[in-house]
Simulated scan of single mutants.
Amino acid sequence: MNFGENLKRLRKERNLSQEQLSEMLNVSRQAISKWESNKTYPDIENLMLLRNIFNIALDDLLFDENKDKIEAVIKSSKLPTNSTNYDEDESEDELSDNFMIGGFIIGISIGFITDNFMWGIAGSFIGMGVGYLLRYINKRDMTN
C-alpha cells in the first residue's frame, strides 16, 4: 500500500468523508482527493495532523508499502547479526575509552594539585595514546 491508499483506508475505517477530513485539516476536499490518488502529498503540518487524527505513526502512514522491502534489505545487509561478536568488539573499545578518560582525569587532577595546567594536557595525551594503542593492537589481532 502507498500513502494515498493508506489515507483512504484510514479515512473509511473512521467513517469520514473527504469533506469531513478536509474540514478537520482546514484544506479543500480536492486536496484530500489528490492525496488519496497520490497526485500530491500533504505538507509536514498536515502529516502531523493526520497522525493525530488517525492515531498512527507517520512511518505506518507513509512507508507501509515498503516495510517488506526494508526488512529484506536489512536482512540481506552486511550488518553484524551475531550479537556476541559485536559485544566483544564493544567491550574492547570500552577498555581503550576508559584509558583515555582515566588519563585525562588523572592529568587534570595532578594539574589542579600542582597548579600546573600542563599536567592536565600531558595526562590527557598519555591516556589517549594508551587508549589508541590498545585499539590498534586489538584491531590488528582481530585481522590476523
Rank of each mutant, 00 (worst) to 15 (best):
D64C: 01
K75P: 00
K69W: 05
L62T: 06
S124I: 09
K78A: 10
R51S: 15
W119V: 08
L16R: 04
K67L: 04
I106L: 14
D141A: 12
N82F: 08
G123H: 01
N116T: 14
E92Q: 15
L21P: 02
S124W: 08
S109Q: 03
L49M: 11
T143M: 15
N85W: 07
Y41A: 12
D89V: 11
T81E: 05
F112C: 09
L25M: 09
I126T: 10
T40C: 05
M118I: 14
Q20V: 11
T84C: 03
S28P: 00
T81W: 01
Y86H: 07
N26M: 09
E92L: 15
M48W: 07
L95C: 06
T84I: 11
F3N: 00
D141K: 13
L95K: 14
S96H: 06
N85H: 05
D64F: 11
F125T: 10
D43V: 12
V27N: 02
E65C: 06
G103T: 08
L10Y: 10
N46E: 06
Q20P: 03
S76D: 14
S17Y: 03
A122D: 01
E36C: 11
M118Y: 10
M118C: 03
D87I: 13
N38Y: 10
L25E: 04
I70H: 05
N82T: 06
S77G: 12
K8A: 08
I32P: 00
M1D: 04
V27M: 02
D115K: 14
L62F: 11
N116G: 04
I106W: 05
Q18V: 05
S77L: 09
N82W: 07
R9F: 13
V73G: 02
E65W: 01
S33R: 07
S124R: 02
M1I: 07
I110Y: 10
I53M: 03
R9S: 12
L58D: 02
K67N: 00
S124V: 08
Y136M: 15
K39D: 10
N6P: 02
L61V: 04
D60S: 11
D60R: 01
N55E: 14
E88I: 14
S28V: 03
S37M: 06
R14S: 06
